[in-house]
């Protein structure tokens, strides 16, 4: 096997995730895109683990998953709270902090 295709796939998925963050308005979908970016980086980490012949990359991917889980829990709780007060899950609606 070669490393390059995996890494390129990882890069493409990361780019798609970042564009998703920029174009979607639903906070939950934005979150999903962030997850997509995290997963893309995980793929790169796991690929590097294989390429270098040690398990540190897999450990890193594991930590990323744990942190992502924590992040999702808190993030979704925040979205819930905002939805309760504003009756909207759009990230554009929460735009009072501006000029």
């Amino acid at each position: 096997m070669s490393t390059e295709p995996y890494i390129l796939l990882s890069a493409i998925l990361f780019t798609i995730g970042s564009v998703g963050v920029l174009v979607r308005r639903n906070a939950i979908v934005v979150f999903m895109c962030i997850e997509l970016m995290l997963n893309a980086s995980n793929l790169a980490l796991v690929t590097f683990a294989k390429a270098n012949g040690n398990l540190d990359g897999q450990i890193a991917a594991f930590f990323v998953m744990v942190v992502a889980a924590a992040e999702v829990v808190v993030g979704l709780a925040i979205i819930m709270t905002i939805f309760r007060t504003r009756r909207s899950a759009s990230v554009d609606d929460a735009s009072l902090l501006k000029y």
Binding site: I28, L76, M80
Partner: peptide
């Protein structure tokens, strides 16, 4: 968890 929250939040303009 995402799906749960989606159901709680429902559908809106976003």
């Amino acid at each position: 968890l995402f799906l749960f929250v989606l159901m709680l939040v429902g559908v809106d303009a976003s």
